[in-house]
Deep mutational scan, measured.
Amino acid sequence: TFTSYQLEELEKVFQKTHYPDVYAREQLAMRTDLTEARVQVWFQNRRA
């Protein structure tokens, strides 16, 4: 599960791009204290 802060950050990036590159995902992962893999999976699920 994600915190409301994490979801907010993820959604913010999703609004800009549905396909963030690895750099964007790593920045987001650091900001949200998630792994890059978790961020990647979240985007895959969000796009589905």
Score class of each variant (00 low, 15 high):
T1S: 12
T1E: 15
T1V: 15
T1L: 13
T1H: 14
T1G: 13
T1C: 07
T1F: 11
F2M: 10
F2S: 11
F2I: 08
F2G: 02
F2A: 02
F2Q: 02
F2C: 04
F2D: 01
T3I: 04
T3M: 05
T3W: 06
T3S: 11
T3V: 04
T3R: 04
T3D: 06
T3Q: 06
T3A: 06
S4N: 11
S4H: 14
S4F: 10
S4L: 11
S4V: 14
S4K: 13
S4E: 13
S4Y: 08
S4Q: 14
S4I: 14
S4W: 12
Y5A: 04
Y5S: 09
Y5H: 07
Y5M: 08
Y5L: 09
Y5R: 09
Y5C: 06
Y5W: 12
Q6W: 02
Q6E: 04
Q6L: 02
Q6G: 01
Q6Y: 03
Q6F: 09
Q6H: 02
Q6M: 06
Q6D: 01
L7M: 10
L7K: 05
L7D: 05
L7I: 12
L7H: 07
L7A: 08
L7Y: 05
L7N: 09
L7G: 03
L7S: 07
L7W: 08
L7C: 05
E8G: 08
E8I: 09
E8W: 08
E8T: 10
E8D: 14
E8V: 11
E8H: 10
E8C: 15
E8N: 10
E8F: 09
E9I: 06
E9T: 04
E9Q: 10
E9M: 11
E9N: 03
E9W: 06
E9S: 05
E9F: 05
E9V: 06
E9C: 08
E9Y: 04
E9D: 03
L10F: 04
L10I: 01
L10K: 14
L10V: 02
L10E: 05
L10S: 00
L10P: 00
L10W: 00
L10N: 00
E11G: 02
E11D: 04
E11K: 02
E11S: 03
E11C: 02
E11M: 13
E11P: 01
E11H: 03
E11W: 05
E11R: 02
K12C: 05
K12T: 06
K12F: 04
K12A: 13
K12P: 01
K12N: 06
K12V: 05
K12L: 09
K12D: 04
K12S: 09
V13S: 06
V13E: 11
V13I: 10
V13H: 06
V13K: 03
V13Q: 09
V13L: 15
V13F: 10
V13R: 01
V13D: 02
F14R: 01
F14K: 00
F14A: 03
F14H: 01
F14E: 00
F14Y: 14
F14Q: 01
F14P: 00
F14W: 15
F14D: 06
Q15Y: 07
Q15W: 07
Q15R: 11
Q15P: 00
Q15C: 06
Q15S: 12
Q15E: 12
Q15V: 07
Q15A: 15
Q15L: 12
K16I: 11
K16W: 11
K16A: 12
K16S: 11
K16Y: 11
K16F: 12
K16L: 14
K16T: 13
K16G: 07
K16R: 10
K16D: 11
K16M: 13
T17F: 07
T17G: 07
T17N: 14
T17H: 07
T17S: 12
T17W: 07
T17Q: 10
T17V: 06
T17K: 04
T17Y: 07
H18T: 08
H18D: 06
H18F: 10
H18A: 14
H18G: 03
H18K: 12
H18M: 13
H18Y: 06
H18S: 10
Y19L: 03
Y19N: 06
Y19H: 08
Y19R: 04
Y19P: 14
Y19E: 05
Y19S: 05
Y19K: 03
P20I: 05
P20M: 05
P20N: 01
P20T: 00
P20Q: 02
P20R: 01
P20E: 02
D21P: 06
D21V: 03
D21H: 05
D21G: 08
D21A: 06
D21Q: 04
D21Y: 02
D21I: 02
V22P: 08
V22K: 15
V22R: 15
V22A: 14
V22I: 14
V22D: 11
V22F: 13
V22E: 14
V22Q: 15
V22S: 12
V22W: 11
V22G: 09
V22T: 14
Y23W: 12
Y23G: 08
Y23N: 14
Y23L: 12
Y23I: 14
Y23S: 10
Y23V: 14
Y23E: 10
Y23A: 12
Y23K: 14
Y23R: 15
Y23C: 06
Y23T: 09
A24N: 04
A24S: 08
A24T: 15
A24I: 13
A24D: 12
A24L: 14
A24C: 09
R25Q: 06
R25A: 06
R25E: 03
R25T: 11
R25N: 03
R25G: 02
R25F: 10
R25H: 03
R25I: 15
R25V: 15
E26V: 14
E26K: 14
E26G: 08
E26Y: 13
E26R: 15
E26H: 12
E26A: 11
Q27P: 07
Q27Y: 08
Q27A: 14
Q27S: 11
Q27W: 11
Q27T: 09
Q27I: 11
Q27E: 14
Q27V: 10
L28M: 03
L28A: 02
L28E: 00
L28N: 00
L28S: 01
L28F: 05
L28D: 02
L28R: 14
L28I: 09
L28V: 08
L28C: 04
L28T: 02
A29K: 05
A29R: 06
A29P: 01
A29V: 10
A29N: 07
A29G: 07
A29Y: 04
A29Q: 06
A29S: 08
A29L: 05
A29F: 03
A29C: 08
M30D: 09
M30A: 09
M30Q: 10
M30T: 06
M30P: 00
M30I: 13
M30R: 09
R31V: 11
R31D: 05
R31Q: 10
R31G: 04
R31L: 14
R31W: 07
R31P: 00
R31H: 05
T32A: 08
T32S: 04
T32F: 09
T32H: 03
T32D: 01
T32E: 02
T32I: 15
T32M: 09
D33M: 12
D33I: 15
D33C: 11
D33T: 07
D33N: 15
D33H: 14
D33A: 11
D33Q: 13
D33F: 10
D33V: 05
D33K: 10
L34F: 01
L34G: 01
L34I: 04
L34W: 08
L34A: 03
L34D: 01
L34R: 00
L34K: 01
L34C: 03
T35W: 03
T35M: 04
T35F: 03
T35C: 03
T35D: 10
T35G: 04
T35H: 05
E36S: 08
E36C: 05
E36R: 05
E36F: 09
E36H: 08
E36M: 12
E36D: 08
E36N: 06
A37V: 11
A37Q: 14
A37P: 08
A37K: 09
A37S: 11
A37I: 11
A37E: 15
R38S: 13
R38N: 12
R38D: 15
R38T: 14
R38C: 11
R38L: 15
R38I: 15
R38V: 11
R38A: 15
R38W: 12
V39H: 00
V39N: 01
V39S: 06
V39L: 07
V39R: 00
V39E: 01
V39C: 01
Q40S: 14
Q40E: 15
Q40M: 15
Q40H: 14
Q40I: 07
Q40A: 12
Q40R: 15
Q40P: 01
Q40N: 15
V41M: 15
V41D: 12
V41W: 15
V41A: 15
V41F: 11
V41G: 11
V41S: 10
V41Y: 15
V41P: 00
W42V: 09
W42A: 00
W42T: 11
W42I: 04
W42M: 06
W42E: 01
W42H: 01
W42L: 01
F43L: 04
F43N: 00
F43Q: 00
F43K: 00
F43V: 01
F43P: 01
F43T: 00
F43E: 02
F43M: 04
F43R: 00
F43W: 01
F43S: 00
Q44S: 13
Q44W: 08
Q44L: 07
Q44K: 12
Q44R: 07
Q44E: 15
Q44F: 09
Q44A: 13
Q44C: 08
Q44M: 14
Q44D: 09
Q44V: 10
N45M: 13
N45G: 08
N45H: 09
N45S: 10
N45P: 01
N45Q: 12
N45A: 14
N45F: 12
N45K: 13
N45D: 12
N45C: 07
R46Q: 05
R46W: 03
R46I: 02
R46P: 01
R46L: 02
R46N: 03
R46D: 02
R46Y: 02
R46M: 07
R46S: 03
R46T: 03
R46H: 03
R46K: 10
R47L: 09
R47S: 04
R47M: 05
R47Y: 03
R47K: 03
A48N: 13
A48M: 13
A48L: 14
A48P: 04
A48W: 09
A48K: 13
A48C: 14
A48F: 09
